[in-house]
């Protein structure tokens, strides 16, 4: 049994340590907000935080998070009160919504270290998250709104 702390709660898994966290989170821990999009770290739908930094969970093995704190979209805030979540709703950023957990988690990781991001900062941090609905401009606007509201 491997113990993993996710959203400040300890979970246990007996899966092989090489198993990607994405499937452990989704299928074992019931945290389905983290999405499968490509499986090769190209699309970013599976983005989580490990000790506060953005990680693509589809390529992050269990062994890489042991002893660290994992945060998923479900744990970003208890009640959707994170400034990014509020800004996302204010801008009506989501369309189909499938990539949005990844968008928000990547943005949250960026804002922690770059609280007042420029457009270039946003491009660099968010380029790894593909959205086929084309919500990029609203995502950008939402990040700026959250930053304006002092969000991390």
């Amino acid at each position: 049994m491997t113990k993993i702390s996710v959203n400040k709660k300890v979970f246990e898994t007996d899966s092989d340590p090489s198993t990607p966290m994405l499937w452990v989170l989704r299928d074992e821990f019931g945290l389905t907000g983290t999405k499968f999009g490509c499986g090769i770290a190209q699309c970013g739908s599976c983005t989580i935080h490990v000790d506060g930094e953005a990680r693509r969970s589809c390529v992050t093995p269990i062994s890489a998070v042991v002893g660290k704190e994992v945060t998923t979209i479900e744990g970003l805030s208890p009640d959707s009160s994170h400034p990014l979540q509020k800004a996302w709703i204010a801008e009506d950023a989501p369309q189909c919504g499938y990539c949005q957990s990844g968008q928000i988690m990547a943005a949250a990781a960026m804002l922690k270290k770059t609280p007042k991001p420029t457009d270039a900062d946003i491009d660099q941090a968010m380029n790894g998250i593909i959205c086929r609905c084309g919500t990029y401009n609203r995502v950008r606007a939402a990040i700026k709104l959250a930053a304006m509201n002092g969000g991390k």
Binding site: A41, A54, R55, V59, M110, K113, Q124, G128
Partner: peptide, 13 residues
């Protein structure tokens, strides 16, 4: 890398 997109975001050990 940059905040939100570190090398370690994708590259493992």
């Amino acid at each position: 890398g940059v905040a939100g997109m570190e090398c370690a975001t994708c590259h493992q050990a």
